[in-house]
Design a protein around this nucleic acid. Structure first.
Lengths: 355, 355
DNA sequence: CGCAGTCATGACAGCGCAGTCATACAGGCG
DNA sequence: CGCCTGTATGACTGCGCTGTCATGACTGCG
């Protein structure tokens, strides 16, 4: 008794049609069906059409498990993401999905729970078990040196060589130059120095921004005020702002490592009776959607998530499909500073409270 | 010549060890290795230990493609998401991932590009092709009646029965009751009526919120002012706020369908010389992270994304693993109104500008 | 006309697992 | 003691594809 194909039978559970069923209907061999569906050469137009028609009629869908087993390739890319709804990581994930799909790859996603030790390594391991041709580690947190000594290419977005591996490709989110641009914007407005509310230093992204800030100040020979560290949340920015307003009376410019903290900071400053930007200028980072509409509209730095994801994935796909090709370096994404109303020149004649 | 296992050989490409390799090393049959890795009954403690040790030594990882082919199950759930970094959808996706992993399922993600016709159906199709045991359609946009007539269970989060299918499970994000609570909060403060800035009506979530607003006003016998429709963005909230401030001088309370629009709205009101909450009270929806730190801190409604995701996935997994069980209804998630400083009783004696 | 080269197709094996069935032995019971 | 039930294991097969090789048919050219 042979199997009864999909839509044909009246009763019983319908059985998904296989390539042989299509082949039979089209009057060709199963292998030819495979050829058509893989877009291989050497299939006559006539046969191709017949196969596609037969497939359509039966509602045929290729079984990707069988394909993966036979070919050794899954056409799937695994992503290790952070499991946070923060605008940056979420946007990057979306960009990765789009780029992967455009490249003909499906996506598997595993989130690392923050604070989970060995999270990245474990996540990569589980992806390999699920079967992926390549892995993207998106904006990870520093967990000490992680060895990504795995057999597939790995793209690390937004983290340096801490992630070592034989087939690692690192593409930058390039936050350092962006942070530098933000800081320089404030210096160019005439501020003597710029304070910094940093992100949590376990995040590479936070360190990059800190480094960019330092670099800008160094380059201009300015002193580096003590850094306050937040946790990306508006709440932490608020707390940092309170501390800043209380401790130092000479703060005229602050660069916050993300927009949420900048917004919290502005609120704290406002509560302390300081006006933004009249008394204190504030720059954020990310250009989250609300930034243009908070009070005052926030000057911030826009990250080209889409370009980063696309560029990184291009490299990854190349590494997957042409393992022997040179590991071409990533192109640096463009810097974009969005100047709004939260920054202004310092009030030169403003009397110092403490003098 | 037989294959040389993984870490053993010095030269050449290492070949991933298979179950037979583990079996050989442990002195058992391949089938027994399979039993151990699937946690089946009837394996002696001694054998189990030996197999695990052998697997460890070889660095064995099961091949999930082979497993899927042989068993017909992929242990993977596919998610159709919207491809937006909006807080709601992103949070829901994270909740889904966690819940799926806890249930022992991996995740495949496909984003629908907004405005892509037939996006959901196409996305589901591509997931089926990739091989999934179940599908989650997360907060979709109305594309007309979509028939999810597929062979696997489908969980639709946050959309009504427009998505029909033989094995569909619908779990609510229950935005209607939340929207109703938000509106009633304003009425209880003493406002005569409440204006509404709606989300794009192609979104079910936006319609639910609109319906909740209407229900609250009807229940209290209040008139329903005309609705302004935004697109979730702060920019659209800003535009709506401008229109509102210009057109009507009797606006004392506004319920915005999400926090971003509420923030844009507040900015527009501020620019028009109206104070929040003194002149106008504003309620948002979502409780995005910055909401507590904008000026003024936003009264809003928190959605229990995690609970919704977890509950929905429980139903989906049940439908996958026990196809014959009753399709238990979803439990309604709890309502949580977060009252901050953007709402207050109306200024009773405030002189009307136009009188 | 005969032979090489290209194009088009099919036969067959095997990817690495899980399902099915057979087998073997232990203990309980009438 | 034979029989049955429960436990523990292995042999064999097949899931639905792709890779490899074989086989024709057709083309161009000396």
């Amino acid at each position: 008794m042979s199997r009864v194909g999909g839509q044909g039978g009246q009763g019983g559970t319908p059985v998904a049609p296989r390539a042989v069923d299509v082949a039979r209907l089209a009057g060709v061999s199963q292998k030819t069906v495979s050829r058509v569906f893989n877009g291989e050469r050497y299939v006559s137009e006539d046969v191709r059409r017949r196969v596609l028609e037969a497939a359509e009629e039966l509602g045929y869908r290729m079984n990707s498990a069988a394909r993966a087993l036979a070919s050794g390739r899954t056409r799937t890319i695994g992503v290790v993401a952070l499991g946070t709804a923060l605008y940056g990581p979420a946007s990057l994930l979306i960009g990765i999905e789009r780029a992967a799909r455009d490249a003909g790859y499906a996506l598997r996603v595993v989130n690392t729970l923050e604070g989970d030790p060995g999270g990245v390594a474990g996540a990569v391991e589980s992806l390999l078990e699920q079967g992926v041709d390549g892995v993207v580690v998106s904006e990870p947190i520093d967990e000490g040196a992680v060895s990504l000594d795995v057999e597939v290419p790995v793209l690390v977005l937004g983290a340096p060589a801490v992630f070592a591996g034989p087939r690692a490709v690192v593409a930058g989110v390039g936050a350092e130059s962006l942070a530098r641009a933000a800081t320089e914007h404030l210096l160019e407005l005439g501020h003597m120095t710029v304070h910094h509310i940093a992100g949590p230093q376990r995040w590479f992204a936070a360190r990059d921004r800190l480094a960019g800030w330092r670099a800008a100040l160094s380059a201009h020979g300015r002193e580096q005020p003590p850094v306050v560290e937040g946790d990306w949340s508006a709440a932490s920015g608020h707390a940092a702002g309170r501390a800043l307003a209380a401790a130092a009376d000479d703060v005229t410019a602050v660069f916050a490592a993300n927009d949420d903290m900048a917004i919290g900071l502005i609120r704290a400053l406002t509560e302390a009776g300081l006006r933004v930007p009249d008394d204190v200028s504030v720059v954020g980072f990310d250009d989250i959607p609300v930034s243009a509409y908070v009070t005052p509209p926030l000057t911030t730095v826009r990250q080209p998530f889409d370009a980063v994801a696309r560029d990184g994935l291009r490299l990854l796909v190349r590494a997957i499909e042409k393992p022997d090709a040179e590991p071409e370096p990533a192109t640096d994404p463009p810097v974009e500073l969005v100047v709004r109303a939260s920054t202004a020149p310092p009030a030169g004649s403003r009397p110092h409270a403490g003098d």
